[in-house]
């Protein structure tokens, strides 16, 4: 292959995509420095794997006794009464609220982040691009509790009319039907605030890869008579697609696990509230449920119920990442 794609990140050896671990054969002939550094690197790698495995083992060992003791169906029940003689708990509501709020966040943040990244890397003049990129990065530095308070008390009141409009126009669909929750303490609004929180990740990662589109590709498209947007569509976007997918998945990971902001915004529902698919409903995500339940961590079985919920969140993020990997790998033949 010519060197035109030499600058492409995909041309580098992808540490997470496997490959020979010792291509130069340094292990056999290595000098002391090589061996020390190699050992340290290998140790660090093993440590990370060990930590992930241990977390999984810990979650399982604590969750299993509680699950065995559970009188309700863990996956489909909407109940949550822990403590006392017989525990009844299920994650159906939490799973829905977590996934729904995160999906809302991604639906807003990915197109917005990709657009901002395209503007910064392709359209903005240099004097504007740098400050704009810096500003987006600054968003990432805002602590999530600030987003929570700002969302709940500053933006929320302005968002209420939007929700009312959605409810009156689209109220006939399950997603925007009437609920008992008033104000902006809804899944939809939590998703909006989550979108703002993941925007910097999506923008920064997409922008980074868009900027690396080789000039030869861009000029190739322009020389065929592509307009700027057509050039972006035929070269920049396909080139950046794996980066956008990883950015979206990283963002989704953060949205799924976000705790404090969601806790402040969402209003928890009373136990036994009827099931609703509405995004204008309240509820609790895995993370906010566990955080809210912290005072109840009294007996091992009771704590185990929350840990079981945490285990599901753990598996959920794992699945999200695995899907991202598969999507990226499938496109590999066309990007190298």
């Amino acid at each position: 292959m010519s060197g035109t794609t030499g600058a492409a990140p995909t041309a580098r050896r992808d540490p997470f995509g496997g490959g020979p671990s010792d291509p130069q054969g340094t292990r056999k002939t290595g000098r002391l420095g090589d061996r020390l550094f190699g050992g340290a690197a290998r140790g660090a790698g093993l440590l990370v794997i060990a930590i992930v495995v241990l977390v999984g083992v810990f979650l399982l060992s604590r969750a299993v006794p509680a699950l065995l003791d559970n009188r309700a169906n863990f996956l489909t029940s909407t109940e949550w009464s822990v403590g006392g003689e017989s525990q009844r708990f299920g994650i159906a509501t939490m799973l829905w609220v977590t996934v729904a709020s995160s999906v809302v966040a991604m639906v807003i943040a990915v197109p917005l982040g990709v657009s901002v990244a395209l503007f910064i890397t392709q359209y903005a003049p240099t004097w504007l691009a740098r400050p704009a990129a810096g500003l987006v990065q600054l968003l990432a530095a805002v602590p999530s509790i600030v987003f929570g308070i700002w969302g709940a008390y500053v933006v929320g009141p302005y968002f209420e009319p939007v929700q009312n409009l959605l409810n009156s126009v689209l109220g006939w669909t399950p997603l925007f039907s009437d609920t008992t929750v008033s104000g902006s303490s809804t899944i939809l609004f939590a998703g909006v605030v989550l979108a703002i929180m993941v925007l910097p990740i999506v923008t920064a990662m997409s922008g980074e890869i868009f900027a690396q589109t080789p000039t030869t590709h861009r000029e190739g498209a322009l020389a065929l008579g592509a307009t700027k947007w057509e050039m972006i569509r035929t070269t920049v976007l396909p080139f950046g697609k794996p980066g956008v997918i990883s950015a979206a998945m990283l963002g989704l990971g953060r949205a799924l696990g976000e705790t404090v902001a969601v806790m402040i915004i969402l209003s928890a529902l009373a136990d036994g509230t009827a099931w609703s698919w509405s995004l204008l409903n309240g509820g609790e995500t895995f993370a906010s449920k566990i955080a809210n339940g912290a005072p109840e961590f009294t007996t091992p079985l009771q704590t185990g119920a929350y840990i079981a919920a945490g285990l599901v969140l753990f598996v959920l993020t794992f699945v999200v990442n695995a899907i991202a990997r598969v999507v990226i790998n499938r496109r590999k033949a066309f990007t190298e």
């Binding site: 498209a221 065929l224 035929t234």
Partner: peptide, 29 residues
């Protein structure tokens, strides 16, 4: 843009679109 549709160009380094098949490369224009 119209000029470049009438006056084609081939570059120093071969620059097929890497995300496209052989067919799609030729069909791109």
């Amino acid at each position: 843009v119209a000029v470049r549709r009438t006056v084609g160009m081939v570059f120093q380094r071969p620059n097929p679109f890497p995300t496209m098949s052989i067919f799609d490369n030729v069909a791109a224009g």
